[in-house]
Amino acid sequence: MLKQGGWKQLPWRNIIPGTDIGLALGVVLLLSILIIPLPTFILDIGLSLSITFSVLILMVALFLERPLDFTSFPTLLLLTTLLRLSLEIATTRLILSHGSEGTYAAGHVVAAFGGFLMGGDVVIGGIVFSILLVVNFMVITKGSGRIAEVAARFFLDSMPGKQMAIDADLSSGAINDRMARKKRYELEEESAFYGSMDGAAKFVRGDAIAGIIITAINIVGGLAIGVLRHNMPLNEAASTFTTLTVGDGLVSQIPALLVSTAAGIVVTKGGTTGSADVTLVRQLGGNPKPLAVAAVLSALFAIMPGL
């Protein structure tokens, strides 16, 4: 029997995920994906985990009480970006090397997403996917990056005033030394957080740009390899490699969109308290007059002829 707390001294504890060595091994594993070819079933697991992590990050961001409750978010943002890029490279390797074998050459996840969006029509699927790329890059990613940049700039500009306010409260006796140290620590932590978010947003933007470039490489390179090397008919090569490329793009762009949205939510919570659901319900439904006006306008639109 181990004494209470004795398990903490066991050497194998350091390799449990969540510890420092476990995190280091995870990062090394991500980097190895850039070099080592992956079997399709491992790639399917990795893509599924990427989507799951992105949904988890978004849910955590929605239910945050304050941004400082998620100070690890910039680091997590970098790691998830590295995960997506590693999986994209692994998927691209499979698409270009085995794409001629069919739509399941890059695994079932890529084939499922590609087939779902394409719907049997290459042109319509390509247009819808292009719109998704534009929305993710021009709206979500760019907007989140701009929000993080402005928040970091304004917070850094306001730091001297906040520090002077803490000193004034301490001098007047409104707070004691312990409370002043706590406020200064929170101020430093908040400053580091917004600065890190500003830098991490650049990784997200770079990830979106890399996704667009990888998509173009997959389509052009896949067509060239399929037609010239494997003697595939042009229509068949276009359908196969476009489906694979769209599937690859979806499983990378959807997590990127979710994480970018989470980043915007976290940064914009700087001036609010409470989780997003409570804040939205309280602020949107707290005043009955806007609700009444919106209801009347909706009723008018409903009874207008031709609408």
Rank of each mutant, 00 (worst) to 15 (best):
R84M: 13
L85D: 00
L85F: 15
L87S: 00
L87G: 00
L87T: 01
L87H: 01
L87E: 07
E88K: 00
A90G: 03
T91S: 14
T92F: 13
R93V: 00
R93T: 00
L94D: 01
I95N: 03
I95T: 03
L96K: 07
L96V: 03
L96H: 08
S97G: 01
H98N: 09
S100D: 01
S100F: 04
T103F: 05
T103G: 14
Y104E: 12
H108Q: 05
V109F: 03
V109I: 10
A111M: 07
A112G: 06
A112E: 05
F113M: 10
F113K: 09
G114R: 03
G114Q: 07
F116N: 05
L117I: 13
M118K: 03
V122S: 04
V123D: 03
G125K: 05
G125N: 03
G125Q: 02
I127M: 05
I131T: 14
L132T: 09
L133F: 02
V135A: 03
V135Y: 01
N136V: 11
M138Q: 15
T141Y: 04
K142C: 01
K142F: 08
K142V: 00
G145C: 06
I147D: 00
A148D: 01
E149R: 13
F154K: 10
F154W: 04
F155S: 08
S158E: 04
M159H: 06
M159E: 09
M159L: 07
M159S: 01
M159N: 00
P160Y: 07
P160S: 15
P160Q: 12
G161I: 09
K162M: 10
Q163W: 10
M164I: 12
M164D: 10
D167H: 11
D167E: 09
D167R: 13
A168D: 14
S171P: 04
S172C: 06
G173W: 04
G173R: 11
A174C: 05
A174Q: 13
A174F: 05
I175G: 06
D177F: 11
D177V: 14
R178F: 02
M179L: 12
R181M: 13
K182A: 10
K183N: 06
K183A: 14
K183V: 01
R184E: 10
Y185R: 08
E186C: 02
L187N: 04
E188S: 03
E188T: 10
E188G: 02
E189M: 07
E190I: 06
A192D: 14
F193I: 05
G195I: 12
G195W: 12
S196N: 12
D198I: 11
G199N: 02
G199S: 06
A201L: 08
A201N: 01
K202Y: 11
K202R: 15
R205I: 00
R205G: 02
G206A: 10
G206Y: 15
D207R: 15
A208D: 06
A208P: 13
I209V: 12
A210N: 05
A210F: 14
A210C: 04
I212V: 08
A216H: 07
I217F: 15
I217Y: 06
N218P: 11
L223M: 15
A224T: 08
I225Q: 02
G226C: 10
V227D: 04
